[in-house]
C-alpha cells in the first residue's frame, strides 16, 4: 500500500502525520512524507521531516521516503499524486479562526478541495487521536457502500478496531400504499427481512468477515432522520476514532462532472465540514486497488509505540 502523507508543519498536519502512522505501520506501507506549504527552499525543513520519519517508522516494516515540494500546497499534492500512484493521501485540516471560519466554513479549504479533486482516497485528520479503537462506516445502502465498507473494514482489521456500519433511513413514504414497514425498523429487523437495506447489510457483514473483522467486533446500525444530522449524532455519541464515507466518483467528462456537482449534494464535503473526527473518504479508483494487508497474515493490532 502506498500512502502519501502531506504536512505543512501545522498542528493539524502533525496530528495527521501521527494518525497516519497508526495505519501505515501495521500495513507495512510504502510511506511518502511530503513537506508542502514552504514557498522557498528551506534545508532545515527536509531534515526535520527525516527526523519525524525516523521517530515514527524506524522500528516498523514500512519503507519511508521524505520529499519536499515548494509552492501552493494543493497544487503540489495534486502534482505528486499525478506523478506517482498512491492508494491513500493523508492531510491535516486546520480549523480556520474567526472571520475566516464564518466565510469559508470549519474545514480547511485544502481538505475540501482535495476531497473534490483527488482521484484517490483521502484521509483528513482534524484532531489528535492516539489510537483507532472504533470505526464508523457510513453506507448509502447502494453498491458503492460495499466498496466503502471493504476499505473501512481493511483499516479496522489492521488495527483491531470495532466496526459499526451505519445507514441512515431518511426516506418517508409518498403514499400510505408504499412499503412502509421497512421505514421504522432497526438494523436487526431489516437484516432479517428482504428489504434492500437488509440485503445490503448482510452483504456488508460478509465483506467485513472476509477482510478480517471478526464477529462481535462488527455490527450494523440504522438511524432515522436527515442523513447528515444522524451521522453527526452517531459520530459524537459513539466516540468514534475514524469515520469512513464514500466519495462521489469523479467522471472523466468535465461537463458531466460540473452538472453533477451542481445537482447533487456532496455529503463527503459536509461531513468534512461538520464532524471534527478523522474522516476517510473512499474513492473507487484508489480503494479498488487497496491491498492493505500486514506482511504477516495475522492482523495484529498495532500498539503504535
Amino acid at each position: 500500500m502506498r500512502i502519501l502523507i502531506a504536512t505543512d508543519n501545522s498542528p493539524a498536519a502533525n496530528h495527521a502525520v501521527r494518525f497516519a502512522a497508526l495505519l501505515a505501520r501495521p500495513a507495512a506501507a510504502h510511506v511518502t512524507l511530503l513537506g508542502v506549504g514552504w514557498p522557498h527552499p528551506d534545508p532545515a525543513w527536509g531534515s526535520r521531516l527525516e527526523a519525524l520519519a525516523h521517530e515514527l517508522y524506524a522500528d516498523s516494516a514500512c519503507q519511508v521516503e521524505v520529499k519536499v515540494r515548494h509552492g501552493d500546497s494543493e497544487q503540489q499534492i495534486l502534482a505528486e499524486t499525478q506523478e506517482h500512484p498512491y492508494d491513500l493521501v493523508v492531510v491535516g485540516s486546520q480549523r480556520p479562526g474567526g472571520l475566516r471560519r464564518w466565510v469559508t466554513g470549519t474545514a480547511s479549504g485544502l481538505a475540501r478541495s482535495l476531497g473534490q479533486r483527488l482521484n484517490t482516497s483521502l484521509l483528513v485528520v482534524r484532531e489528535d487521536r492516539q489510537q483507532i479503537r472504533r470505526v464508523l462506516i457510513c453506507t448509502s445502502g447502494e453498491e458503492s457502500g460495499e466498496r466503502d465498507a471493504r476499505a473501512g473494514g481493511l483499516v479496522a482489521a489492521l488495527v483491531g478496531a470495532e466496526v459499526v456500519v451505519l445507514h441512515v433511513m431518511s426516506q418517508v413514504a409518498l403514499t400510505p400504499d408504499a412499503r412502509i414497514e421497512y421505514l421504522e425498523q432497526d438494523a436487526d429487523q431489516l437484516m432479517a427481512s428482504e428489504a434492500r437495506e437488509g440485503v445490503h447489510f448482510r452483504r456488508v457483514m460478509d465483506i467485513l468477515e472476509e477482510v478480517g473483522v471478526p464477529e462481535g467486533r462488527r455490527r450494523a446500525r440504522v438511524r432515522h432522520g436527515l442523513v447528515l444530522d444522524e451521522i453527526k449524532r452517531e459520530a459524537s455519541e459513539g466516540d468514534y476514532d475514524l469515520l469512513v464515507i464514500g466519495a462521489h466518483q469523479i467522471p472523466e467528462d468535465r461537463s458531466w462532472r460540473e452538472l453533477r456537482a451542481m445537482l447533487q449534494e456532496n455529503l463527503a464535503d459536509e461531513i468534512l465540514e461538520e464532524i471534527p473526527r478523522p474522516v476517510l473518504v473512499v474513492r473507487a479508483t484508489g480503494a479498488g486497488a487497496w491491498s492493505i494487508r500486514p506482511p504477516t497474515q495475522a492482523a495484529k493490532p498495532d500498539s503504535g509505540d
Binding site: S170, Q171, V172, A173, L174, T175, D177, A178, R179, Y182, L183, R196, G225, L226, V227, E265
Partner: peptide, 19 residues
C-alpha cells in the same frame, strides 16, 4: 405533483431532504 414522484421510486419512498 407529489403523486408523480411515486412511480419514480419502486418502493414509493422519497428522501426527507428532497421532499
Amino acid at each position: 405533483s407529489l403523486g408523480l414522484l411515486v412511480p419514480l421510486s419502486v418502493r414509493g419512498y422519497v428522501r426527507r431532504e428532497n421532499l
